[in-house]
Design a protein around this nucleic acid. Structure first.
Lengths: 148, 148
DNA sequence: GACGACGTTGACGTTAACGTAAAGTGGTTG
DNA sequence: CAACCACTTTACGTTAACGTCAACGTCGTC
């Protein structure tokens, strides 16, 4: 459904002549260093919807990009449910009503805020690490001088 | 044990005349918007070690700072076990041997790398959000013009 | 035609990080 | 003193995100 959506990947890949490359579940798994189980689980959770050729799943560029975005979201601490929410709204966008779109903007705002806080957290954490590291080096130095 | 350690908080709080303020578990919980249960759990996992006055826990500045760092670490996606590892090594630092200290520096390096990747992830994710948002606004605009 | 590599579904197991409920302790306040 | 509050321990429950295992189908090839 809604496969009429222009192209989820275009924001990243630009407008190269469509690559008709496809992937097996194993290939994707190796590419992103996850297990096939994980990929099937993501599908079950509504994050992926690969084509079926007979029994087996066939993944296109669109699916690969989705997986990439999903994993990136995960590294940033988003739950699969949150990620799915955004993906679903993105898919429904072209024929979405105003209320849905505003809700989407709302969600995006939350994500943004979240990331701003993460940036601040990282800044602070890096300072702490600097501090701990310099202390550790001091102690090491002292040990070296004494031990020698 | 190892309460002889100079002061865990000094890196942040500077060298103000020691604040002898203490906190109850409930106060801390409200301050950081977590439940007492969470704080007790962190203690059980070796992240906190509050004083005991009789039966009840008494938290000092040092504990508050630890909690703050713990929660920050969590927001950055570190597990409690990872956080504890760093805290333990920090505590053991003054009388730690060279091997331990080098291990600490190693861990700090990993954390740093992790955060570098997160920074990159955030940068990329922000671009995606920009993109999705501008598309959503376009559609909204179109709807508004048509609807009017 | 057996074998191995890869794919499939289904079901149960596991881990982290708490939530929640029960039952008791200790202080103070009307 | 009774009632209430905040705190305590113990223990079982819960959720997310997979892991693991069984049992089976489908190729290509030796």
């Amino acid at each position: 459904m809604s496969t009429s959506s222009p192209d989820v990947t275009s924001s990243v890949s630009g407008s190269l002549p469509r690559q008709r490359r496809t992937y097996s579940i194993g290939e994707l798994a190796r590419m992103f260093e996850v297990t096939p189980r994980t990929i099937r689980f993501y599908e079950q959770e509504g994050l992926l919807a690969p084509e079926r050729r007979g029994q087996t799943r066939v993944y296109h560029e669109k699916d690969r990009v989705r997986l990439k975005l999903t994993l990136r979201g995960k590294r940033l601490g988003f739950s699969l449910a949150e990620i799915r929410e955004v993906i679903e709204m993105y898919d429904a966008m072209p024929d979405g009503n105003a209320r849905q779109l505003k809700r989407l903007l709302e969600i995006l705002g939350e994500k943004r805020a979240n990331m701003e806080r993460q940036l601040e957290d990282i800044r602070l954490m890096q300072r702490e690490l600097d501090d701990v590291e310099s202390r550790a080096r001091e102690v090491l130095d002292r040990l070296a001088r004494q031990g020698a």
